[in-house]
Write a protein that binds this DNA or RNA. Structure first.
Length: 271
DNA sequence: AAACAGGCCTAAA
DNA sequence: TTTAGGCCTGTT
């Protein structure tokens, strides 16, 4: 199928740079002209902004990307709940344009296992090596890409086999998760429809998945927007700008979006 | 050179 | 229930 290019109708609600650089995903990269290339659900795409318009070029149907960028949800009205006249509002306004991507569940699970105690640059490197080693080779726009490997591709491997990834002790965790998903012991698709707390509990049964990683997977891979991952950045922001008895539930069913605004703002201030 | 990265596990209070 | 140390690897 030949790639087609089209213009996003609600482009104003999507900010490419913020969405790709806010730390939720690891496989989108800009070239020197600011054109983003990436792969999702086995399809390559490139996106760029031209004035007010955002264009997308892909051989996948438009619906796939419409869902991927969660474009049918009205982030403006959701975000109004975060206008507290203080710090959270500041974060929200700064991060406006971020979309919570609907990433592949297994990719999210695997990526956030890798993320533990790592910086984004290294996470990206490890994920890319994983895709190059075990994903499908794809060609798009005169370039070569690799899909995120299905968990089945990792069956039977031992931790030493993943040494090329240079992911250290996380190799074991990846293999445990891959086996659970591939064998059907862990049904990620059914967890999308399950209660988010139950989904989190289920994920945390796996070795190497604690509270933080589970929350990330639930939010970014299972689309439960209530989840509020707390890492060192968020912990710091909460300590400085929220009351001691703050509870994520107080932010409602889109707490996860608020978390992403806070995270993006907090990091922008220090880096 | 030692400390620290978007944590987790285990052992020990 | 909370806390310390170790863990792979890479960077500062």
């Amino acid at each position: 199928m030949q790639p087609k290019t089209w213009k996003l109708s609600k482009a104003g609600a999507l900010d490419l740079v913020k969405t790709f650089e806010c730390g939720q995903c690891f496989r989108w990269n800009a070239d020197d002209k600011g054109v983003y290339y990436g792969v999702a659900y086995g399809h390559c795409a490139k996106l760029w902004q031209d004035g007010e318009d955002i264009f997308i070029c892909s051989d996948a149907p438009a619906e796939l990307w419409y869902e991927y960028f969660d474009l049918e949800r009205n982030y403006d009205s959701i975000s109004r709940d975060f206008y507290d006249g203080g710090y959270l509002q500041q974060c929200t306004q700064y991060g406006m344009g971020i979309r919570i991507l609907r990433q592949e569940p297994w990719e999210a699970l695997c990526s956030f296992i890798i993320s533990q105690c790592n910086n984004i640059k290294r996470i990206k490197g490890i994920v890319e090596r994983l895709c190059e080693s075990y994903g499908e080779r794809l060609e798009f726009d005169g370039r070569v890409f690799y899909s995120f490997p299905a968990p089945e591709k990792l069956l039977g491997l031992r931790a030493e086999d993943l040494s090329v990834l240079r992911c250290g002790y996380r190799a074991e965790y990846i293999l445990v998760a891959a086996e659970a998903v591939a064998t059907g012991e862990l049904e990620l698709d059914s967890l999308i429809r399950a209660d988010w707390v139950e989904a989190k509990k289920k994920l945390m049964q796996l070795r190497g998945i604690g509270e933080k990683v589970a929350n990330c997977v639930v939010l970014f891979g299972l689309y439960h927007m209530e989840a509020f991952p707390i890492d060192v950045w968020i912990k710091r922001a909460l300590k400085q700008h929220f009351s001691a008895d703050f509870r994520p539930e107080s932010l409602g069913k889109y707490a996860g979006l608020a978390q992403q605004y806070i995270f993006y703002y907090a990091r922008s201030q220090e880096v």
